[in-house]
Amino acid sequence: MSRLDKEEQEILDAFDTGDLKLSPDSEDRKLRHQQYAEAMFKKDARINIRLSSKDLRVLQKKALAEGIPYQTLVASILHKYVEGRLHEDR
């Protein structure tokens, strides 16, 4: 069985005791993520892209941290960009 860190254990304890509360924007967030999921399932085109192996490894690590396949992460990034919701920091 995996060991939990202090923060994870506090969250689990709060869940077990029923002390967790929904955030005020939880419905908006839920709707937004449902829309993301729907957009991800409407895959009707395929692309091939060449990346550096370093960039691919970083994408894979970030996807793993998010708990999603790296292809889904890449598709999400591209979707956000074309929707105007992803901007380069300068």
Rank of each mutant, 00 (worst) to 15 (best):
L56F: 00
V82Q: 03
D5I: 03
L78Q: 12
H79I: 01
V82K: 03
P69Q: 05
L73H: 07
H79Y: 09
M1Y: 04
R32E: 02
L64M: 09
A37S: 11
F15S: 08
H33K: 08
N48P: 00
L12I: 03
S76V: 03
T72E: 09
E8N: 09
L20G: 02
L31A: 10
S52G: 14
N48W: 04
P24N: 07
K61W: 01
L59M: 15
Q71D: 03
K30N: 13
E8Y: 05
K43F: 01
L64W: 06
K62N: 11
L78W: 12
R90V: 13
K62E: 13
F41G: 10
D5W: 02
R90H: 13
L31D: 09
E10R: 11
P24A: 07
Q35A: 14
R46Q: 11
R29D: 10
T17E: 05
D13I: 06
K6Q: 11
V74C: 04
L59I: 10
E88H: 15
R46V: 09
R90F: 12
M40P: 02
Q34M: 15
V82S: 01
I77G: 12
M40N: 10
Y36D: 15
L4S: 10
T72L: 03
I68Q: 09
E88T: 15
R32Y: 04
A65E: 13
D25W: 02
K80S: 09
K42R: 06
K54V: 11
Q60M: 08
D89R: 11
I49L: 09
A63E: 01
E88M: 15
R3Y: 01
E88K: 15
P69G: 06
R46T: 14
Y36P: 01
E88C: 15
D44Q: 08
D44R: 07
L78T: 10
Q71E: 08
L86N: 05
I11K: 06
K43T: 06
I11Q: 06
L86M: 07
L51M: 14
S53F: 04
A45E: 12
D16V: 01
S52L: 12
K80G: 04
D44V: 04
H33S: 07
E88F: 14
A65L: 10
D19H: 00
I11C: 03
S76T: 14
K42M: 06
D19S: 01
N48Y: 02
R50V: 08
L78A: 15
R90I: 13
V82T: 01
I47Q: 04
L20W: 01
L22Q: 03
L64V: 02
K43H: 04
K21I: 02
L51P: 01
P69F: 00
N48I: 00
K21V: 04
H33I: 04
S76D: 10
I47F: 07
S26W: 09
D13E: 13
L12Q: 14
